[in-house]
Every structure is written in structure tokens, then in C-alpha cells.
Design a protein around this nucleic acid. Structure first.
Lengths: 289, 289
DNA sequence: CTTATAAATGTATTTTTATTACATACTGTG
DNA sequence: CACAGTATGTAATAAAAATACATTTATAAG
């Protein structure tokens, strides 16, 4: 993806030392950025009540090579929802204002994750999943539901799978592991003592450990493979959730990869699962709940 | 946000009846779309080995008003990751190709949800949450983990909250409800018989029911308030997951709204929760797990 | 296999748009 | 208040895009 230039927030920044005429240009653009992306330099110059070269200089000052390039960058930063990204939710926000902010933060986190994932690593993880005889998903606290979700996702494969949130259960299963057992451990911080110890136990007993966690964390070091997610997290106030979306999507990527690897083999199995759900629905059944 | 034009996928579509020269233009653009957004019409014409008016006509045929407008739209569809959106994961995809596809599908789902949410409805939902004395999150199957996640999220408020996935438990709690009890029921299809009955039971007993579900579904009709999500779902093959991301983010929006409404009041409570987690971490504690 | 006709493409021109060079008007400082 | 130095505008030039129109190419009827 193109580097987000985020022109727009630069424009609005009061710290920017614009000259009088340039400020007029900035104001005119801010008044209707959408329109600006489709305007000619003459039109914008008129709207700002300045001369055309002033507009041109303004564009160059902001890092564009000229007016057309500026319009392009502006359009790009408009498209990426930059309008809200940098602005955290504030005390005086109301539903119409904070709703897009939160969605945009989530979108931004997914974009960031998408651009930072190493496909080779994913490939290796899929290898491990396909090779495994038994899969355990472990998570505690907020990551517990993620593990559970993964269980549903991986249930369609023929490999036995289960999710566990209870630390004692996790520890027992890890200690009893044997080759062919795959432990996928999810932890945003990678610092939860219980999970790190569990990972070590599992490897000591010859199980394989894959973690989805923070870069350079104790858990990452204690794993055979670590998919590290560095989603710049929300403030102290608002509990982390964007990381969970990234984790969930990542697990979906892995599940999809496994599906593709298995090809046609697993499909009858899938059909059986669907059929078993039909009777729990008011007609026109779909696959989810 | 701007309507995604998705020019790019139109370009690649083989169904498009392009003439010989126009096909050359399409190929030239597809060869390097990024570059095209910064090219002049002359440069592109040369790259495609056609005349300039041909390029211009090509642009108009694709719905642009001219070449500059075409470049703008192309840049926009490039930025929105349109490269992959319409292209479902295919049998011959490998990790480097399907990974961005899945992330983009998720991003797209969130964008769609963001643009379809009615802030007034969110406002009402927040009213109900703030007014409630007890909150229950119900979900079955894939939505179970979402309910559980919500429990974590809402735990920081002083209102007692719990999540339940067991149908019998759900039914019992619903039947025993009283005014002040708020049931938030999550179901992608809105057709799970057990959940719809549970909703009715809860309302019969004077509890309040809010659902996060499909538009015009039995569950939506059985609820006091229904937040409907219509995330065009994945194919039959790949189980629905984008809907869950939308649900999760939506719950985050609601939780944020409640936080803002409560203002400073709940903060000591939050601090206490954080302190209680500190000892489970390897130094430098963060808030998630 | 012509030939008429329409569609497609290209050439040359005009119009629009952007940039540059340069002149003028400000701003602040000694 | 004069003199840098910067900021802005004017006018000319260059670049880009769109148009009008000519030519070619394909298509179908005879």
C-alpha cells in the first residue's frame, strides 16, 4: 500500500508556520477537501483569493512536486480515513463523532498488520498446523475469547482442536504434550507469566509452540514460531481491542491457508457440520450464528 | 467516505468488451497502476503504444469525465486495497497473495459497517446500558466468543455483567429477568431459534433486549432495539468472520460511549482492575493479555 | 469478392491547466 | 527610513488534456 501521507492532518495542524496567503490556501482546502481533489489550480486560487503561483508554492512546501501531485496525495489521505485517525476519542465526543473514530482506528490497525505480516512466516505456521495431530489454543483474559473463536474456526478441519482459558488446564495439557501436539498461544503483551511457563513446559515435552504476541516478548522467545503484532495500542483509558481484531484476522488467514492446502479433502466434513446446524434455525439457514 | 469506485477490478475483468487499442491501454495500466496515477496522458499513451485520444476515450468509457478524473479514481481504488477486495481467495492462492486479501476483506467490512451505522441508534443503546442494573451478553456458536469478549469489555463499568453461551442458562436467566436487566444478544443470522425464544422470554419478564444481528431477522423483530449489520458475507467455503469483527468493533463503540457518558466516575474502579493484574506479568505491565 | 457502412483509431489543433521567470509589495531590523 | 529578505502577484511559457476531424480497419450485404 502507498505510504499514508496524511496531508490533511498536516494542513489542520496549528503548529504549521504558514504565511498569510498560504494560510488562506490551507483554509480553502480544508473547507472542502473533496472538491479540491477535483479542482484546477485556478479554481482553488480563486477560492482562496490568492494567485496561482501561491497555491503552487504551497503544494511544494508540503512535499508535493506540484499541484497535481498534491491533489493526488490529498485524495489518498482522504481515502484512508485520515480525517479521524490521528484524533483519539475525546471527552466531548458524541455518538456521531466517536463511532467513525473507533471504526477507523480498527481499520488502521488492520492495515498496519496487513503491511507488516511476513508471508513466509505464515507459510511456516500453516506447515505446522497441517503437520500437527492435535491443536490447542490458549489465551487468558481478553485473549481467551480469541482462542475460543479460533477453536470454532479450526473445527472444520479433521485435526482435533480445543481452546482453553483456564491456566491450570493449560499447564496440565502442556506438561502432557507429545510430538504432533501444536499449541497456539495468544497473548497481546507476551508477558503473562502463566502463558510463558506453559509455552516452556510444552516445548520441554516435545510439543510445538506457536505464539501470536508482541515482538521481542518473553512469550515470543519461548516459542518455536512467533507471529508478532505491533499494533500501536489505544490509550490507557480505552482498553485494547484493535489488537484482538488483528489476532482474529490473522487466525482467519491461517485457517484459510490450511483450507487451501488441504484442497478438496475436507469438504465432506464441512458439509456435515452445516447440516447438523440446520435444525437450530428459522429457515434460510446461514453458516454463522 | 468516498464511494469506492473499484476501477481496478473492472479493468482486469475479462468480461469487459474492450477494443484492441483499449485493451492495450488496460494492460499498460495494469502493468503498473501506481505509476499510471502519476503519469501524463502522453506517457501512458506511449506505454500502451496508442494515441492520446484513445486513452482519453478509454477513460470516459470507464465512467470518468476525463484522464485526470480517471487517475484520481484509480488512485482511490488503489488506496482502498481494491486490488484484492473483489477477488475472493482462490484455490491457487499462496500466503503472500491470500493474506492481504483476507485483511482487505476485513477492512472493507469495517468500512461498510462504519458507513451504515446510525449514531442515533447507538445513542439509544448507550442510554439503555447506562440505565441498566445488570447486563447479560448472549451468543451461541461463533458469536459465543463475541459475547465473552463483551463481558471483558464491560467489566470495567460498575454494572454487574456476565456472558453466557449455554442455551439453557440463557433461557433460565431470561425467564427470571426483571426491569433493569439488559440482555444484549449477538447473532449473525438472527435466526437461531433458541436465541429468538430467549429474547421473547426476557421481554415477557420485563427485561430489555438489544440485539446485534441481521436486518429484518426474527431476532431483530423480537428485540427492543436492534443494531443490524449487513456485512456482505464471504462465500460458502470460508466461514464468516468479517461479521464478528464488525460486532466486536460495534461493542467497542458502545463501551466507549458508556465510558464517555460516565465521565470521571468509573476511573478508580479501572485503576483497581489494572492493579489486580500486575502480579501476573513479567514487568512492564500492559493492560491486555 | 466487392462495396457500403459503421466502428475504431490516429493526426492536428485548440483549449485548459500548471509552471516558471520576473517584478512588485510587504516586513522587520539596523 | 533605508535596506535586506521574504512574500506575493503578474505575465509569459510550457505542459497536458480535450476536441474536431481525417483516416484506417472491420463488418455485413449484395
Amino acid at each position: 500500500m502507498t505510504t499514508p501521507q496524511n496531508l490533511l492532518s498536516n494542513l489542520a495542524k496549528p503548529a504549521q508556520a504558514f504565511s498569510k496567503a498560504e494560510q488562506k490556501v490551507a483554509d480553502a482546502i480544508l473547507a472542502n477537501p473533496e472538491l479540491t481533489t477535483r479542482s484546477s489550480i485556478a479554481r482553488l486560487a480563486q477560492a482562496a483569493a490568492v494567485s496561482e503561483p501561491t497555491v503552487n508554492r504551497f503544494c511544494k512546501r508540503l512535499g508535493a512536486t506540484g499541484f497535481p501531485d498534491f491533489k493526488l496525495k490529498l485524495a489518498l489521505s482522504l481515502a484512508s480515513g485520515a480525517r479521524f485517525i490521528n484524533s483519539a476519542v475525546a471527552e466531548d465526543d458524541t455518538a456521531p463523532t466517536f463511532t467513525p473514530k473507533i471504526f477507523n482506528a480498527s481499520i488502521h490497525a488492520l492495515e498496519k498488520t496487513r503491511d507488516s505480516i511476513d508471508p513466509k512466516l505464515i507459510h511456516h505456521v500453516i506447515d505446522e498446523v497441517v503437520a500437527s495431530k492435535r491443536i490447542y489454543f490458549f489465551g487468558q483474559g481478553n485473549s481467551g475469547p480469541v482462542a475460543q473463536d479460533a477453536e470454532f474456526k479450526f473445527f472444520r478441519f479433521n485435526t482435533p482442536v480445543s481452546a482453553h482459558q483456564d491456566p491450570l488446564m493449560q499447564r496440565m495439557l502442556a506438561a502432557a504434550s507429545k510430538p504432533g501436539d501444536l499449541f497456539i498461544i495468544i497473548s497481546y503483551t507476551g508477558r503473562t507469566i502463566g502463558l510463558v511457563e506453559t509455552a516452556r513446559l510444552a516445548r520441554d515435552s516435545l510439543g510445538t509452540v506457536i505464539s501470536i504476541t508482541a515482538p521481542a516478548s518473553p512469550l515470543a522467545r519461548a516459542s518455536d514460531l512467533a507471529i508478532t503484532l505491533d499494533v500501536g495500542e489505544d490509550t490507557d483509558e480505552y482498553l485494547p481491542m484493535t489488537s484482538r481484531l488483528a489476532q482474529l484476522t490473522l487466525l482467519d488467514v491461517i485457517a484459510t491457508g490450511v483450507t487451501l492446502r488441504q484442497g478438496q479433502a475436507h469438504r465432506p466434513h464441512l458439509a456435515r457440520i452445516k447440516a447438523s446446524l440446520a435444525s437450530t434455525r428459522f429457515n434460510s439457514a446461514e453458516q454463522d450464528t
